[in-house]
């Protein structure tokens, strides 16, 4: 349970708002889900041998402390307080590192942490895992793109063995035939990228939100990095598929009209 002025560390609520007085409480998404509480519901909290009645003023997303936290204005006994968190605003132009060192030398019993490190320490494990998952997803998707291209190529070359041999016999070069393959497959790939990007931008948030709701964050807003999403990623896929077509279509060199002639 967190007590204090939450407005210093702005938080966007899924529903409702931060507690405005001592009768209000805000619950994390996972807490609210498990307790079956919604904004406006009442909830009783036992503290110091008393039953305290609160009204749920808001629900927010939180993935710290297992996703189960709450915010309320309760006057805790000092002995029950696990930690005091004091947020400091630094004036523009002040070096944060220097100010941190200065405060550490004065407040030797306190832990002074710049906000960037605080975020990193709090969410570091999660962001590292997400980075690992996204990295694995990229590798798997590229490997799949290559494998599917190889399978399509094998299918086309086997099905069109005769047509390829005929084309070669009437003067098409191996290069002409391989360019035809590349155009066909890259066009399919291009359509797949457009459809995939559209689905990632629409269903992606929903699916990812469902997965992360188990950790306490149900409403995930995905931030799109345009250069990465719309340029680097499609270019990498197209390049890999192109290389696969170049290597995989090498087989047309061995096709000969002789194979089509039945003596």
């Amino acid at each position: 349970m967190e007590n204090g002025d939450g407005s210093v560390f702005p938080l966007e609520y899924i529903e409702g708002s931060a507690p405005k007085d001592e009768k209000n409480i805000a619950l994390s998404y996972l807490n609210a889900s498990e307790l079956g509480k919604r904004v406006g519901d009442n909830i009783t909290v036992s503290y110091g041998g008393e039953e305290l009645l609160f009204n749920v003023s808001g629900i927010y997303q939180d993935i710290t402390y297992g996703g189960k936290t709450a915010k309320a204005n309760i006057d805790f006994e000092d002995k029950d307080v696990e930690v005091y968190i004091i947020y400091l605003d630094i004036k523009d132009g002040v070096d944060i590192e220097e100010k941190t060192l200065e405060l550490r030398s004065i407040l030797i019993d306190s832990k002074i942490t710049p906000i960037s490190k605080f975020v990193s320490q709090t969410l570091g494990g999660i962001t590292d895992n997400l980075s690992l998952i996204s990295g694995a997803a990229i590798v798997i998707s590229l490997v799949l793109a290559v494998l599917i291209t190889v399978m399509i190529l094998r299918l086309i070359t086997a099905r069109e063995h005769s047509a390829i041999a005929i084309k070669k016999s009437i003067g098409f070069s191996n290069k002409d035939i391989r360019i035809q393959f590349a155009i066909r497959i890259l066009l399919i790939q291009l359509v797949a990228i457009v459809v995939g990007t559209f689905l990632a931008n629409t269903l992606g948030e929903l699916i990812f939100g469902m997965i992360l709701s188990f950790m306490g964050a149900s409403e995930i807003r995905m931030l799109i990095e345009p250069v990465k999403s719309y340029l680097l990623s499609p270019a990498t896929q197209l390049f890999l598929v192109f290389i696969t077509v170049v290597v995989g279509s090498n087989v047309v060199k061995s096709y000969h009209i002789r194979d089509q002639i039945i003596e």
């Binding site: 005929i166 084309k167 016999s169 290069k175």
Partner: peptide, 24 residues
């Protein structure tokens, strides 16, 4: 080279095979 030869065959040579090889 392979491509030059293909062009050469395309413009200088005509081919007719035992089974008429036509594209579907």
């Amino acid at each position: 080279k392979e491509e030059e030869l293909s062009d050469f065959r395309l413009s200088k040579m005509g081919f007719v095979f035992q089974n008429p090889q036509m594209l579907k």
